[in-house]
Nucleic acid binder design. Sequence first.
DNA 1: CTAGGGTTAG
Length: 457
Amino acid sequence: EHHLRLARLLFDTMPARDAASYNILLTALAARGRVAEALELFDEMPEPSVRSWTALVAGFAQSGRPADALRVFRDMEGAGVAPNEVTVVAVLAACADVGDLDLGRKVHGYAKRQGYSRNVLVCNAAIDMYVKCGCVDAARGVFDAMDGRTVVSWSAMICGHAMHGEGDKALELFAAMRRRGMLPNGVTFVGLLHACSHMGLVDEGRAFFESMEKDHGIAPEIEHCGCMVDLLSRAGHLQEALEFINGMPVEPNSVVWGALLGGARLHRNVEVGEEATRRLAVLDPGNDGYYVVLSNIYAAAGRWEDVARVRRAMKLRGVKKTTGWSAISVGGTVHEFAAGDCAHPQAAAICETLDGLLEEARRRGYAPDTSVVLLDMDDGEKERVLARHSEKLAVAFGLMATPPGTTLRVMKNLRVCSDCHAAMKLISEITRREIVVRDRNRFHCFKNGICSCRDYW
DNA sequence: CTAGGGTTAG
């Protein structure tokens, strides 16, 4: 901050400024996410070069402002400036962040035509983009076609398979990597542990955790511990998870306690859930999600007075439940839906389509899971609330707006709800469509009535 | 010493 002010002062008092001096300051501003200031300086520049544009795109992409990065990139296209390899890497990363498959594909196509495919960084960025846009097979295609893979390429692909619930492929890839004498790093192990966690491979996960230090000299960090707590608590070993936390080589953070809380919900353990929430209230007081999960645990146990107590505590602390939303991109336009949303121009038709699908799903054994609705209302009302969850609306719209057979790709800001998960499986079977849902932390690929997570999540 | 890039747990 101080250095940036000094740089600005120097810049402003320079007798003459050339392109380089502008670009240096531009880079510094963009990298710190100072969007308005960076854009203002950019507009003052006499002749912005590819490097100036790229400084903005890359800086915004890296400082957690992917939407700004993509906006600038579109302006860059409009200005007729040809992106270079660095621009491509940054745009692909931004596409990965927001899940923009259309733009990601386009940019990757451009990169291939430009001969950028020999650039390892471009390929790695493309792998991650395809993974995070729900196309793990396309990511694997890029990976398989590469010739100069680095540990980053291997790790990105292992993490990609893990994210998509393809733990077996992640482990196979690790074996292949070892056969080629490629040395893993800490990220590789995060991917492996994540893979084990999503497949319930408790023994394998424990073995990887042991071996990383012993055989590879890689000290476990907080991320690896987080994976272990997730692995153990997801599999129902809540006591062992708690002991693991107490014996951890590093101080547990909110992610670690959050993983335990998730396991407590899954296995309906009120005591462990309460313990985790107590810790989380200290470590991450501004986050509302934990209270919601705890009240879920109480609701599942039928402890409605406690549900009410948590809700009162939330109100007292001024925490509000984050509104869930789902988005689907159709024909280059992103359509966003909130629960119960009637704002879409085709809302009536969407609801009609959805109700028809849910009726058919019921005939095939779907029963609305009203336990996920935490509001005080009767079951009929709860069912009506469930039937308008944002992911269901997004899928119904996607089905209407795309030709038969098109894969639907939905993005959600929170975790997909368990009732929607059950409904999606049947909707994929009824409509013979593949539905890929990008959750807050993983992918669900629904196909022929089955989800890629095999209901372990 | 004229700037820029890829993988990571809830």
